[in-house]
Design a binder for these strands. Structure first.
Lengths: 201, 201, 201, 201
DNA sequence: CGATAAGCGAGACGGTACGTCTGGTCTTATC
DNA sequence: GATAAGACCAGACGTACCGTCTCGCTTATCG
């Protein structure tokens, strides 16, 4: 979102912001990520294109802001074990991803290549947030003496997020069993990380 | 690839097929998935656009055919255990994915939504091939009595492919450590599936 | 020219209109009617293709508008006789046609068949304008009692326009003698129409 | 029509020639000059495109050969006067032109610009033939002492052919009155030429 | 309170890619 | 060597979309 010069001039209308978000989601639902047009969003929102581009540098950023930006992710309360914590985190990931349409996730992931700004925003919002949660859980495990030495967060991230992502976007698994898969992913990651940490493999 | 009416008329020239594939890869390497143009491919291949569209219904199918379609995947030789087999499979996935540029994988995954034909082709070539390998490995485990009851292949698929995919395309992990991650994913999946199979959780 | 929704939005720029007209004429002069390309016109005008198609439904209409649409035709001042008037009209036709390149005239005439909209525009601008001039001259002759009864304008039109057109586009006559031919055509038409009017044949 | 190397190999089949002519006319009748496609003609004739291009250098030449090439034009028998002869000639022109569709005439006339070979063929078949007839009629008039000095054939040609052409292709006059117009054109041309010849203007 | 600054909807602008279509040539296998 | 079928190169067509700009207007703040 480009900076807003404060003070002089007419202030931006919040109604416009809301209308854009609502219209973006509506058009996405109707035509999908690939079929979404800025003109269509503007028309559906009853808004000029300039109002959109005053807020978002590109179409992708608009979509990002309307669908993914605000996806909250709460850190799990302290569990009994690393395994329990990781299962909770995986379930959190699943819940978070599930709130955005699959094609939007895939589309944004693709558009990240070739748009560094979007990549930056994606990393800052998504990756950083998820990895912060993970760090906390891993630290707890160290405190609990489950883990002797710190573990690379990115590895843990891939082990946890990957299965959920693949289930939802690649394998096209049954949405009703996403929870089952998240639990399995959490347990799998815990055993792998603990095994690594113990160094017995 | 649209059906070829056999027998009558001038046959398609293999040289053209090759030129298109080579040019597609070259343009992808130079401009990336988003920057690829059919005209650019045609020009680079010294070929008319019609020759391309005679072979591929859309730009995406052309890219698919040039980058992903032929990605071989060999089934691992019989290992000592399910864990060993799954590690080998995960390494196979990593090697297979590594042969295509990341932006191409992401781009195709995105374009699958909204192009059912491409989705079909993707499933038939990619998913089916990988899941066949997985089935074999899982069957072996049943034979070995490691697994008491059969396991849903899609679950295993997500547990194995997900981490590799996430490492390469989302977390942007160090390519040199992709092998490490694949090994971890294999072990993690094995322990999760064995745990499930034993039903002790 | 498609209708312009008035009032709202950014108004069309006259500079663009002019640039398109100028570029169309330049490309026509350089490559001829058959060699003209909309892309070439757009490039020469420094204009997007959309700006052209916003104004003209087809390439032909664009050419029409740039070369033929505005060809003025002044009614001759009252002459001494029908013959004198018709000579003046024929010379007017010759002057009018002479201002557009021959291949353009032939090309547009051909494209009229199969494009009803263009035919309509052609009739409204060209035929109607010329026939209005003719009507006036014929009315004067009736007033002068040269003609006892009104004459079919289309007949007069063919008798006058035909020779000039044929001289310029079919017979490929010497351009320097177009004036001579126009005079002859005027006299010929006058004598034929007067002969008809008198009914002595 | 490209030269035929005689003797060796399989001779051309006349059936193919006929089929091409028939198909050309059929497609012209159905889709018009602008809508005619070589592929369509080949398909309608049950013939390969090569068979067409072996006989005709371009699409236009094919159409020319199928519609206009053979349009006969008989010289009028000796009439009582130049006027009578010219009327006969004009009627001959009208009859000749009437045997080809209007859009074809206009289309070929347009394509002549930019295709010198077609222009050559057109001149040789059409203009030369018509002007030969005209020359003969004008010579007779000199013999009859109606004309003191020879008249430029091209001028006479324009005066006669022009009105007929304009009536049929530009003014879109009633086909049933084409004869009337031809008679008028003949009389008009005669009076103009006689006037010129006498030098009294 | 009047000037200034920025917002607004509408829609034109330059640029560029798409997928289709055609013309004229070339290549098979068959006659 | 002619034939039917059809692939080949080249390149124009008209459409669609992106992100920017311009119009006439409205709405706030600042002097």
């Amino acid at each position: 979102v480009p900076e807003v010069s404060k003070g002089a001039g007419r202030p931006r209308e919040e109604k416009v912001d809301e209308a854009i978000v609502r219209a973006t989601r509506a058009v996405l639902a109707e035509r999908g990520y690939a079929g979404l047009t800025v003109d269509a969003v503007a028309a559906a929102a009853g808004v000029g294109k300039a109002a959109i581009y005053r807020r978002h540098a590109t179409k992708q950023e608009m979509i990002f802001a309307a669908t993914v930006h605000d996806l909250a992710l709460e850190a799990p309360s302290d569990g009994a074990s690393l395994a329990a914590d990781l299962v909770a985190v995986a379930e959190g990931f699943a819940e978070q991803l599930g709130r955005a349409p699959a094609d939007v996730l895939a589309g944004l992931l693709a558009d990240i290549y070739g748009d560094p700004a979007l990549a930056e925003r994606f990393a800052a919002t998504f990756l950083v947030r998820q990895q912060a949660v993970l760090e906390e859980v891993l630290d707890r495990a160290v405190g609990r003496n489950e883990l002797a030495q710190p573990v690379d967060v990115r590895v843990a991230h891939a082990l946890l997020l990957g299965p959920v992502f693949a289930w939802m976007l690649i394998v096209d698994g049954d949405p009703d069993r996403t929870g089952v898969l998240a639990r399995l992913a959490g347990e799998a990651a815990a055993s792998a990380l603990l095994g690594t940490g113990r160094g017995d493999r």
